[in-house]
Nucleic acid binder design. Structure first.
Lengths: 256, 256
DNA sequence: AAGTGGTCTAGACCACATT
DNA sequence: ATGTGGTCTAGACCACTTC
């Protein structure tokens, strides 16, 4: 028991252990319950940056779960970049400044982290005959039609990106029904997108896009083409996002 | 024993099991040994796309390792997108077409996958006084100097990218000593880079870069700024990579 | 009903870091 | 020497898919 931590070992920590304990009634896996609760605790600032968490064995004993399970929960947070492990030394909170890591920080996530308020404005929503690209990438039959959605993405009122999505009409029969979140709508319709492939490349803004985005034609933009798949591995979403490079950049963390 | 697989269960599979068995002498963890060998086997085409692998229990018994260990090895390949699991059904090879997934496919990786032969040509290697950006991002002291390396990245003889790296002179005292791989050199010097943050954004090519890259000024390029960290979490590498957008694009897979 | 992946346990040993 | 993360085991039960 390190003396330095004594102020945390009394009733303070007792109530904290309780907050981390798994619910008897819940059916979700123990390690997921614990990993979520621990993530909340970290975000709530229970520990300082670079401060060591309780050891895996301590978690195990205090929470009444096996060490393997506790460790598996920590694996999840490690994967998210929330914590780091030092062999023989301990498990540590990743400093906030270095946290924009994880896989690929994107879209509204980054904006929210930077403190912006994201919003969006519909430019058009309707039904169209698919382009050649859409037919191929969405695997459409020859006469099928697509729902096409186009909108501006704003942060604090400034246009940051233009987004155009196409979906087979069979999956989105009424484009007008989509609220502010396409993904949320697909969830409620029973066709959630669970996986997506994103191609990221650079393009010069064409006059149309430039006008809508409020930049000069020819300016470099990031063009992200996303293909979204359902759990059945069917491609049902093709989205192009033109991002203003002066407001947008992507951060990715690589490890060896 | 499914009759359909009988042709794989005889001597064929016997020799295969041996190829997957861990080495008695090796000190590397069992699950890593197995995961590597299995990855090789998959790339060697032991199984077809969408074909089921042997079950976790089968691997466990045949290889003399516990199921937990076998499963942990499979976790690694799952993470890489090489396999997929279907609860109650089995573990399956990911079709090649969908494999450019993983985290973020980049640089020479993608080229090699597409069958190109990567190479590089030095444009300059020397010592310089750091820019303001370098001082800040590398945390240099006021009078420190940097080693600066600049090169063309080619694939099958065509320029695909321009890369400029800066490192504190203390970590790279002799820029001329670097061979074809900066990372390999740093490894041998005892300062391996284990983690890197990459910022990806779009820029218009300036005349200098355009000339070297063989494109028109103003063309959109991907600019990747990478900061590489050692195990001690010290930033020792700052690299800008300008990528020709007609040859380069990044692919990332997202999951929910 | 049988086979598969998904979760969980209790205990063990090793390698590394700190003291 | 002690504590920590890293690996490994043998066995168990559940949930899902397939037949």
């Amino acid at each position: 028991m390190a003396p330095l931590n004594d102020h945390l070992q009394g009733s303070h920590m007792d109530s904290r252990w309780n907050a981390l304990k798994p619910e008897e009634t819940s059916t979700t896996p123990l390690y997921l319950q614990f990993s979520r609760k621990l993530a909340e605790a970290i975000h709530a600032g229970w520990w300082q940056a670079d401060e060591a968490l309780p050891s895996e064995r301590t978690f195990s004993e205090e929470l009444g779960i096996s060490r393997v399970t506790a460790r598996k929960a920590l694996d999840v947070l490690l994967e998210q970049g929330l914590i780091r492990r030092r062999h023989g030394s301990g498990t540590f909170i990743t400093p906030r400044l270095e946290q924009p890591l994880s896989r690929l920080t994107s879209f509204t996530e980054m904006l929210k982290m930077k403190g912006f308020e994201p919003s969006s404005v519909w430019l058009s929503r309707g039904i169209a005959t698919p382009t050649h690209e859409e037919v191929i990438k969405l695997g459409l039959s020859p006469n099928a039609q697509v729902a096409r959605l186009k909108r501006q993405r704003l942060a604090d009122g400034v246009v940051m990106a233009i987004e155009q999505s196409s979906l087979p009409l069979t999956y989105l029969p009424d484009p007008q029904a989509v609220g502010s979140s396409l993904y949320a709508y697909l969830d409620t319709m029973g066709h959630p997108i669970v996986r997506a492939l994103q191609h990221i490349r650079a393009v010069n803004a064409n006059p149309d896009i430039a006008a809508i985005a409020g930049i000069k034609p020819g300016e470099a933009m990031l063009l992200i083409t996303r293909i979204g798949y359902t759990a059945d591995n069917v491609a049902i979403e093709l989205t192009d996002t033109w991002c203003r490079n002066d407001y947008y950049d992507f951060v990715a963390e690589l490890r060896r």
